[in-house]
Nucleic acid binder design. Structure first.
Length: 482
RNA sequence: GCUGCUAUAGUGUAGUCCGGCCAAUCAUUUCGGCCUUUCACGCCGAAGACUGGGGUUCGAAUCCCCAUAGCAGCACCA
């Protein structure tokens, strides 16, 4: 038996990593993790494991509009599934006092000011590289306004704190970006606040305070990196090493959390683990191993090129993991019951795994009638071999298939180029629904499948499947891949 | 519109910094063949790419310029 070869893909070296690294995975708790999150999560994890150091999970829940109570739990579950080595967990909602303190200090240092302009108005001024009326105010006046913000004397949208950059910066995205805002609705599930830090501020403060040395994230953050640099500079902090990987498109699945939620609410999807979604729990339900996801992500790497995620590559990784482990069983889709003429009773013994006979066999007693895949008969083969049983000749008599025993010799079947197909005894087959992304397939499977609840098996000639539920009157299995 | 990033086979990736050993790596994919009581696994073989155009150079996937394409940002989201 041969070991599947493992190709170890090495990620590019990170500079300033000699004495270990501190990295973080910083999801927004708006839903469960999906393939897009997995890339950030696994890449950072891989580097921490490689160089040693600390991996921080930072829950970025500074926008109450995008916080889902359930997600706090789901994110942690998904991270455990992925096998990340998290050393420390930080909730940003626990750190608002910290942000206020540094917010005040930034104002004192002249690095920020309170802006009471109308949003629309500010945007226009910004396009024209013009200062808004709030910008020239003194530090003292700003501090006073800041205290009023914290005291709740402004309504939503009436005041914000902006970081002072260059108004004539060629990139409009850099000009005096916001650091705090006021929000009355909705209430945050974990804290009582009306002044909320914006991502660029809380991230900069936390990256510094937590000692983050390297940040790997998508290139949609490249402007944020530049913005955060202003904050680092005002405080005199040294910046981490940044890497921005390119956009990752994934064919065929919705990755947007809000779209998924909408689909769930409308009933289009069964839940977050609906197999048509790109969530990690959907992959898990289908029988994709976390290690396969990790491998696939590392294989993709941290390149800045936009890429399209390939299911084929993920499946190949998964097959490598699952094939040596999965027991083999027969699943007969769209079964047709046919008696076999002139056949001796016989008990078939089929290996649980062809490359590992020691694992034992499944026992399938033939008592006269078998269930066969309708599709195979419709191909009108002159002869077929029932795998691990015997050969049968196929003919038709007025729309009816007639199968006649044609000997035990495998070599005969080979000579006749007869297909070797899966079958089940009519009297000991379990109803089984194989659920695929394209739709459900009704069929029957071996009784032994019941022992495999939760495991991935291979339905011979059909593909891998995860046995999801064996408790009801029929087995429910989810198709993994071929 | 402004700002920035990227561009190697169907897909992902190595090589690009420090030009020659690159008629370009590895994996996946597809197609042949072998093995095999699965259309799995394994083995052997094949197919398939440097976005385009100029320039520098004895020599360019690698350096320079232009073009084209894709992507990202310009939110009181992350």
């Amino acid at each position: 038996m041969s070991r599947p070869r493992v190709h170890v893909k090495e990620l590019p070296h990170l500079e300033r990593s000699d004495s270990g690294v501190v990295m973080r995975f910083a999801p927004n708790p708006s839903g469960p993790l999906h393939l897009g999150h997995a890339r950030a999560a696994v890449l950072n994890d891989a580097y921490v494991k490689r160089y040693g150091g600390k991996y921080i999970l930072r829950i970025e829940d500074t926008d109450p509009k995008r916080v889902d109570r359930e997600a706090y739990r789901m994110v942690v579950e998904d991270i455990e599934w992925l096998g990340l080595s998290i050393h420390e967990v930080v909730y940003q909602s626990d750190r608002f006092d910290l942000y206020y303190r540094y917010g005040k200090e930034l104002i004192e240092r002249g690095g920020a000011y309170v802006c009471t302009c109308e949003n629309e108005q500010f945007r226009e001024l910004k396009q024209q590289k013009t200062a808004c009326p709030c910008r020239p105010l003194s530090v003292e006046e700003n501090l006073e306004l800041w205290e009023k913000m914290l005291a709740g004397e402004f309504y939503e949208g009436e005041a914000s704190v902006r970081v002072r950059t260059e108004l004539d910066h060629p990139d409009p995205a850099m000009r005096d970006f916001p650091a705090f805002r006021i929000l009355r609705q909705p209430l945050h599930p974990r804290i009582d606040a009306i002044v909320y830090p914006l991502m660029n501020f809380s991230v900069a403060v936390d990256d510094h305070l937590l000692g983050v040395t390297h940040v790997i994230r998508g290139k949609d953050h490249i402007a944020n990196t530049r913005r955060q640099r202003y904050i680092f500079d005002y405080f005199g902090w040294s910046v981490p090493v940044y890497r921005h990987y390119g956009r990752m498109g994934i064919e065929g699945v919705v990755l947007s959390t809000s779209q998924m939620r909408q689909g769930i609410v409308s009933g289009e999807y069964e839940g977050w683990d609906d197999i048509r979604l790109g969530t990690l729990r959907a992959l898990a339900r289908r029988g994709i191993a976390p290690e396969a996801v990790r491998q696939a992500v590392v294989e993709i790497g941290i390149g800045e090129t936009d890429i399209s995620f390939s299911w084929d590559n993920l499946y190949a990784q998964n097959r490598m993991i699952v094939d040596p482990v999965a027991n083999r069983y027969f699943f007969v889709p769209h079964p047709v019951g046919v008696p076999i003429r002139q056949a001796p009773h016989h008990v078939a013994h089929a290996l649980l795994h062809p490359n590992e006979p020691a694992r034992g066999t499944r026992v399938l007693p033939f008592t006269g009638t078998v269930l066969l895949p309708r599709g195979e008969l419709e191909k009108d083969p002159p002869m077929i071999r029932l795998k691990d049983l015997f050969n049968v000749r196929v003919s038709r008599e007025e729309e009816e298939y007639v199968l006649t025993y044609a000997g035990d010799q495998l070599s005969d079947a080979r000579d006749a180029k007869a297909p070797i197909i899966q079958w089940l005894p009519a009297d000991c087959a379990l109803p089984c629904m194989l659920r695929k992304q394209e739709g459900d397939v009704e069929g029957v499977c071996e009784p032994g499948v019941v022992r495999e609840a939760g495991a991935v098996v291979q339905f011979e000639r059909v593909g891998f499947a995860r046995i999801d539920d064996t408790a009801g009157d029929r087995v429910i299995a989810y198709f993994t891949h071929r």
